[in-house]
Amino acid sequence: MKRGVSNKTILDKFTEDFCKIVDKHCKYIICSGFVAISHGRSRGTEDIDMIIEKLSLDKFKKLHDNLIKNNFECIQSNDSKKVYEDYLSKKDSVRYVRKNQLLPEMEIKFAKDEIDNYQLSSRIKIPFTDLDVYFPKIEEAIAFKEEYLKSEKDLEDAKHLRIIYEGKLDEEYIKQFKKRIKKIKL
């Protein structure tokens, strides 16, 4: 179904601009709330969550420098070594914004287990969203929200996604993925 391309939101533009740069350096997925929002869920968010493959310091430096060159800045520090050593390699996330803007933010973290890595390897682009960015499979996004995140907001996001993809979801895949989440993340 053809959907308009002229209605991109501030979040859409920010996400696409950011992902275009990251895509040159590593695999990534956009996950959590923005998956639902890009499917029309009527709620806001200030930050977009991104998981990237684990990089060496050298490779991360190239990515970070490219983001800085393209008018983004890291809230924690603009020193790539500090961002890498004090945050990412300690499994903490870091946040990037457009230079001199407070919002929106891209919250980045390294893949930290086999589930994150699996999601990176099975990532997809989703035509419904009209966005040129990679997401996890919808079944995985639903499983995460229902099994791991579980807040009221997340369960509502999952319900929204279930309605959008009614009749098209692989329920067995969701069930198995929830088992993996339970085993590895919980």
């Binding site: 053809k2 209605n7 991109k8 939101t9 501030i10 929002i37 029309g40 009527s42 806001g44 200030e46």
Partner: peptide, 15 residues
């Protein structure tokens, strides 16, 4: 199919 046009002002206004 025009859902985004309806949602855009709401999402942008929040930011």
């Amino acid at each position: 199919t025009n859902w985004k046009k309806e949602l855009k002002p709401f999402l942008d206004a929040q930011i």
